[in-house]
Every structure is written in structure tokens, then in C-alpha cells.
Simulated assay, not measured.
Amino acid sequence: MTRTVTTEEKLREFVKFSATVTGFNEFDLWGTGQAEAYYETVMDQEGRDALQKAISSVPSATPADPVVKSIIKLWYVGVWYGPELTGRVDVAAWTAPGRSGAKPAVPDSSQPEEGLPGQAAPVQQQAGEDRAGDSDERTPPFVVSPEAYTEGLLWRAIGAHPSGAKAPGYGSWANPPTLENH
């Protein structure tokens, strides 16, 4: 008879894995109050198989799995970015108005079809070509919960407080920051 792994055990495994990839200990991760929300987000967005693959990739020297990178970002900033798409260049996203230092995007009708001389054309998916995880229907980045921003590991890592939340107290700006030993 095979033993069924409970959701609580899967959540503990997720936190243990997350401690390995974030550099924070399990106690700190549980202390954010976001473990369950983050676990559910990964399960909803990527599924059980992708999470298991990510967890099994941890012993390698570098976490190259895109899901692992997304989970690290999730813990640090509280935003689900989703795995980066590989083999695809989205020129419009990099030249859209409003990006820091970017020029306004060129209207589609005025863009040359074959690009500039010496410039590689953007990679386009061919009809019928199947790329795992590569879809125009990806969920855009989103904040996982109202508390996710203030509980992000980023703030502890840089020895700061999130703007507009968890104020350090009146006059604390007069003292230099103290960095925790992580």
C-alpha cells in the first residue's frame, strides 16, 4: 500500500526547497506568513510536475530551471513573474513607452519586415510548433497577496524597510542601517 503525501507535507517540502534556493532559513520563510500563498501560486501557475522538477533540480550547482528562478523572485519581491520564455525575443516589450530610458515604440506598420542590416530578426513560433511553457496566453506578473510586498525577503537582504509599511520609527533615518548576517 502506498502512502499518500498530504498537502501539509508538500508545503513543508516547498518551504525546505525554498530555504535552499533563497539563502534564508525555513524559520524566516514561515515567518513571512506567505508560505501557503506562494505554494498555491506555484501550483496554480505551473502545476505539480513543474514544481517537482524544480525541487529535484536543486542539488545542481546553479538553479537553471526557470521555475526555480520564478520561485526565488516570488520570495524576494512577492510578485509571480512566471518562468521566462526562452528562444523568443519580444521587441515591443523592450521598446514600449514608459520603460526607463526607452524611446517610444515604433508603430507596427512602419517597422521593417526583415529588421536592420546586421540585426537578427525576432524569433517567431511557427504554426504547429510546440514549445513547452511558451505561450502568448501567459499570466502577466501579479502580486500574490496584500502582505507579499511588505514580507518580501528583499527588505531583509538589503537591511531596509518597505516604503509605506513597517516604518523603522521616528528619527531612525539618522542612524546608518544595520545589515543582518545572511
Rank of each mutant, 00 (worst) to 15 (best):
G164C: 08
P117T: 06
E36A: 01
T22M: 11
V42R: 00
K73S: 14
Q126P: 11
V68S: 03
P140E: 10
F27G: 12
M1L: 15
L154A: 11
T20R: 15
T4H: 10
D134N: 12
A121E: 02
Q126R: 13
S145V: 01
D49R: 04
K73N: 09
H161K: 11
K103V: 09
P59Y: 03
A157D: 09
G152A: 09
T139L: 02
P177S: 12
V15D: 00
L85Q: 10
Q45I: 05
K166D: 08
A148H: 10
G47T: 06
R48L: 15
P146M: 07
H161N: 10
G118R: 01
T41G: 00
M1W: 12
A105G: 12
Q52G: 10
K16D: 10
E36R: 03
P66N: 04
A64E: 14
K69E: 07
G128S: 12
G82F: 05
D28I: 07
A37D: 03
S172H: 10
S135G: 10
L29Y: 04
L179N: 11
A120H: 05
E13D: 10
E26K: 04
P176G: 04
V67R: 02
K103F: 10
D134Q: 15
R138P: 06
A174N: 07
Q34H: 10
R138Y: 06
Y170A: 13
E8N: 05
P97H: 11
A96P: 04
